[in-house]
Nucleic acid binder design. Sequence first.
DNA 1: CGAGGGTTTGAAGTGCATCAAATAGTGTGG
DNA 2: CCACACTATTTGATGCACTTCAAACCCTCG
Lengths: 242, 242
Amino acid sequence: MQLYQPDDVRSILTKAPFFKACDEAQLDRLSAGAVLCHYPKGKILFLHEQKAEYAYVLNSGWVKLFRETLDGDQAVVDVLPAGHLFGDSAIFNDAVYPCGAEIVERAELVQLSLAAIRTEIQTDNHFALRMMDTMARIRRQQDREIEHRSLQTAPQRIGCFLLRLIEQKQEKGAVTLHLPYDKTLVASRLGMQPETFSRALARLKQETGLTIKGATIEISSLDGLARYSCGACSSEFPCKEK
Amino acid sequence: MQLYQPDDVRSILTKAPFFKACDEAQLDRLSAGAVLCHYPKGKILFLHEQKAEYAYVLNSGWVKLFRETLDGDQAVVDVLPAGHLFGDSAIFNDAVYPCGAEIVERAELVQLSLAAIRTEIQTDNHFALRMMDTMARIRRQQDREIEHRSLQTAPQRIGCFLLRLIEQKQEKGAVTLHLPYDKTLVASRLGMQPETFSRALARLKQETGLTIKGATIEISSLDGLARYSCGACSSEFPCKEK
DNA sequence: CGAGGGTTTGAAGTGCATCAAATAGTGTGG
DNA sequence: CCACACTATTTGATGCACTTCAAACCCTCG
C-alpha cells in the first residue's frame, strides 16, 4: 500500500469546504475524538438504517451512497468526491443512516463523532447555519436527480453527467476528461445497467461527436453536448447548482 | 367561492407541525408580516429558480411541487398535504426556489416572509434545530423517492403510495381509502403517464385483490399489498420514514 | 341535455433490461 | 516478458415495461 505523507486530522478538516469557516477552538473540539482512516475499495463504512455514531470527511478516493432492497437490488444515491462530509444527516430523526456507504476507490478519510458535531450545532449558531446551507444544497441536487431520472434518456443523463464533471472549464471548445471511476459504477450512479451505459455512450458519441478511448473522453463541442443533454433538464447549461 | 370561518394566521401556524414548538413571542414575530390567502386550483405560487421572498404553510388543500424542462416536460417532485411548510429551503443558497409550486386543490395557506424565518433561525438555536430536523426528514424522503423511481415497477409504486396514504391504520384486515386528488396527478406524482397509471392499477387489482370504484379503493389485505410492493424497497412495511 | 375534462382501452413503437457470449484490459506468478 | 486468470466492457439477440397516439367512455356541472 502506498504511503502517504499523512495529513493530520486538522489539516484535512480545514481543507473540506464544510469546515472552512470553523475557528481554531472549534476545529480543536471536532478533531479531538476524530480518527484518520485508510480503507481499500470495497470497504463498507455503514449500512442503511444502521444506528449512526460517526460522520466522515473524505480526503481522497470515492465513496458510494446506496440503498438495497429486500429483493437484493441496489440503487446508488450518489458517488461522492474528495472534500465531502457524509453520514451527518443521521444526527437528526432516529440517528440511523439514510443510506449505506461503501468505498469505491481507495480512500483516506476522517471519522468524526456525531456527538461532537451535534454539540457544535447546538452551541454555535453559525455552525448550524452552515450545516443548513449544506443540507439545502443537497436537497437541490436531489430534486435535480429526481427530475433527471424521470425525464432524461440514458444518453442525456450521461451527457449531463459529463458536463457536471467538467464543471467550470469555460472554454467553448474541446475538453478532455477521465472518468473518475468504473464505467459500471457510473452506470449505476446514473440509474442504468452497464450494458445500457455502453450503448448510450456510443449513441452520445454518434450524436455529439465525442471521442472515447477507454476511460478518456474528448468532447469536441461543449455547446453541442449541452444542446443535446440539457433540453430535457430544467436548468440551462452551465448548471449553477451543486 | 366558499366562505370559511377564517382561521387566523396564529391558529394555523400553531396547528402546523413545524411551528408546534414555537413560543408565543416567536409566533407573534412570525405572524406579524404573514398573510392568509385562498387560492383556487391551478394557481401558481412560484416558479423554479424564481427569486424567493415567501414561504407558505398549507392549511387545507394540496400543493404540487414541480420542475419543468426546456422541452416542456414536467417532473412532479412531491404533492404536499395540509400542514406542510414549503418554499422555506430558498432561505439558503441563492434565495431562489428549488421547484415551482402550484395549487392542485383549492387551498388555504399562510404566506410568511422568508426574512422573518431567517431572523428566527439566526436568533433562536432551537428553531434552527427544528428546521434542520425537518430538512433531514425531507432528505430521507427524497432518498427513498430516488430509490423508488429507479427500482420499483409502476404497480409497485402505486401499492407503496397507497400504503403510505393509509399511514397508521394498523388493522391487518381491509381498509377503504379515497385518492386525495386526480388520478392524473397521482400518476405524475409517481413519475408515470396517466395511461400507465390506469393499467398499473388494474394490474395491482388483479395481483393483490383490490376493489376499485372511481377514486375509492378498498384494500382487502394490507399484508398482501405490502408483500407485493415492498419487496422492491429498502424499508420494510410499515414504512417508518415520513 | 350537452360540453368538457378526467379516465379507460386499444394498437403500435421505443427504450431499457436481460441473458448470453465475445473481447479488451489488468494484475499475477512463473 | 509471457501466459493465465479474472474482471471490465462491449456486442448481439430478445423480451418486457412503459410511452405514445388515438379513440371511446364516463362523470360532473352548467
